[in-house]
Nucleic acid binder design. Structure first.
Lengths: 143, 143
DNA sequence: CTATGTGCAAAGCGTTTGCGACGGT
DNA sequence: ACCGTCGCAAACGCTTTGCACATAG
């Protein structure tokens, strides 16, 4: 967390109460929350917090590489801390997103013909399926 | 294409001119176009076509499993034909999305501990980097 | 002939922005 | 005291919806 404070100072960002709380909520969250989700969670302890501040803060933290936007098919953007290389499990029913690690994949190399495309920076796996909760509820995917 | 006509009949969808043209454009497209992109491309040959029809048609084709929505961090939704298993290359600069194939990955198995999560249906790789065009233009990624 | 699909215009929803007040540094 | 940030409200962009007419089956 004080690494966060240092990063803010380096970036010229002020250490406001709101900023700290929004970041702290993201540290604790494992579910890649949307802006609105964060808003509802934080509103309990910060009743005057506004949704705009959440949006502005998320954009600013993203710009400075402290958090990142998650790839999704939904219209709502979702966010996560910029952590070590990881991959995502996505439930097609409840659209929960969970991290997992797969080091043997990380160390493997891509097909050679990708060099023709350009310069590769990162590779990520997304696994789709049904999480245990949704399997139990016996709720098959929509349509 | 007549497979498409058959699929429409099976789904109880009428074979309208607009529907056929929108689907045909998606068959030809390799760049995972957004609704608006399709609109501009089709407008040339179908001047009376409306954007709402594009949206409605895309939603309907998606519901029937003929096309799918691509995972993205942008607010605009992008679409592709439901083809054989493939993976995506995404340029962080121009956000172009290109398909690639990687059969040795497709045949590999996931870490065993994922069974604890639920039932896996599909796994996809997303490669991020800079495409050749953007490398040439010497346009480094934003910020 | 009937149900579905279309085009138009208006509404919806998530997100962004201009403004004046506020608060770190 | 200064510049970044906040909350408010209004605007924005992408997408969806209600309605009346048109069209495929």
């Amino acid at each position: 967390m004080s690494a966060f404070e240092q990063a803010c100072r380096d970036a010229g960002l002020k250490l406001t109460h709101q900023r700290l709380e929004i970041f702290r909520e993201l540290v604790l969250a494992t579910d890649h929350p949307a802006a609105e989700t964060l808003y509802h969670r934080l509103k309990k302890h910060l009743p005057t917090l506004s949704l705009d501040t959440i949006y502005r803060t998320l954009a600013s933290l993203e710009r400075h590489g402290l958090i990142s936007r998650v790839y999704t098919t939904q219209s709502q953007a979702r966010f996560e801390l910029e952590r070590r290389l990881h991959h995502h499990l996505i439930c097609s029913n409840c659209s929960e997103i969970i991290d997992f690690y797969w080091e043997s994949f990380d160390q493997s190399s891509l097909p050679e013909n990708l060099n023709a495309w350009g310069k590769v920076k990162r590779k990520n796996v997304t696994v789709h399926g049904l999480c245990r909760k949704c399997l139990k509820k016996n709720t098959p995917d929509p349509a």
